[in-house]
């Protein structure tokens, strides 16, 4: 074999190793977290972990339900507040806004998607928490699901707006021209033709936003209060539940990680597994929806 040939072969092997290393990191992270969480699943039991309402590591009680409820409610709140605004913003930018607005706004939205979450958390702590505290409601201290939902809503706004805008813009112009030629108004064209055609892209924007909301950590620790309790309405009407303090799955890991030893530590890894599974469920549900839509929605 020539020298060149040897180098060629050697580099192939080196690159293969790099590929394998990257892949093995994925596998390693998965296996490691699973292995560390096994004692918790084994000793506490999967069902007890998922349905237990008490999380008192000192007393050997490890129930994740309050954190699952916290993560779920805060994500729900963020989606309710942020999603309509974000989608409207995406549609506005793609179809309605004049070019000069688009030129200015699009890069700034991309910029906002990159702002560190701790900055949003800081804003929440300094501005939102005292503002929410003004609401006269028993037990309200400002920290809680409402503040956290608003922070998250602002955080996922740019992500959803920019991804859905790209999805809407990528609908071929022929669709639009066809609809207009058939006598639709522009709004009818958007609603009946463009949005259905962009459905899968919009859905993936929503999923990205959901993932970001479920996975957010630092901003949540700063504003949600971190109390280990099932969110309650504190005796008031149902929306009052958003004034309740709570803790997210991510916050549970971050706040207790460095304190934990033994089974407690393993239970935190189990928290990570639960979080991971939740996100995988959201992702695959979206993927399933998308493939159905691609088949059904596109001519």
């Amino acid at each position: 074999m020539t020298r060149k040939g040897i180098i060629d072969e050697a580099m192939r092997v080196v690159l293969l190793c790099a590929g394998l290393a990257s892949l093995s990191i994925v596998v390693l992270i998965g296996l490691f977290i699973l292995r560390e969480s096994l004692p918790a699943f084994h000793e506490i039991g999967v069902w007890n972990l998922l349905s237990g309402k008490e999380w008192r590591p000192g007393q050997g009680q490890f129930g994740l339900l309050p954190m699952i409820a916290g993560s779920g409610l805060v994500t729900l709140g963020a989606i309710c507040l942020g999603l309509p605004l974000a989608l409207c913003c995406g549609i506005f930018l793609a179809e309605i806004a004049p070019t000069w607005i688009r030129v200015v706004v699009r890069p700034s939205i991309e910029l906002l998607a990159g702002i560190p979450s701790v900055v949003y958390g800081l804003f929440g702590l300094v501005v939102l928490v005292p503002a929410v505290r003004q609401i006269d409601y028993p037990g309200n201290a400002g920290f809680g699901l409402l503040s956290a939902s608003i922070v998250l809503a602002v955080m996922i706004l740019p992500t959803i707006a920019s991804v859905s805008e790209v999805a809407i813009r990528s609908v071929p112009d022929e669709y639009r021209q066809g609809a207009l030629a058939l006598g639709s108004t522009r709004w009818e064209m958007i609603r009946r033709v463009v949005l259905p055609a962009a459905r899968s892209g919009i859905l993936s924007a929503v999923v990205l936003g959901l993932g970001r909301a479920l996975g957010e950590t630092i901003a949540m620790i700063m504003v949600i209060g971190n109390s280990v309790m099932m969110p309650t309405t504190m005796g008031g009407p149902l929306p009052g539940i958003f004034l309740s303090r709570a803790r997210t799955l991510t916050g549970n890991i971050a706040v207790e990680m460095s304190y934990a030893t033994g089974l407690h530590s393993s239970a935190l890894f189990a928290t990570g597994v639960v979080l991971f599974v939740l996100i995988m469920i959201v992702n695959s549900a979206a993927r399933a929806l998308m493939s159905r839509n691609v088949r059904g929605g596109r001519p």
Binding site: L23, I33, L214, G215, T217, F276
Partner: peptide
């Protein structure tokens, strides 16, 4: 198969919340 597996792995990793990397990094 390797290509497919890697793509899947990378996609999965991209969707993992950062605190899980923290958990992994702290423990390992």
């Amino acid at each position: 198969a390797f290509l497919k597996l890697s793509r899947f792995g990378i996609e999965t990793l991209a969707g993992v919340p950062s605190i899980i990397f923290g958990l992994f990094g702290y423990a390992l």
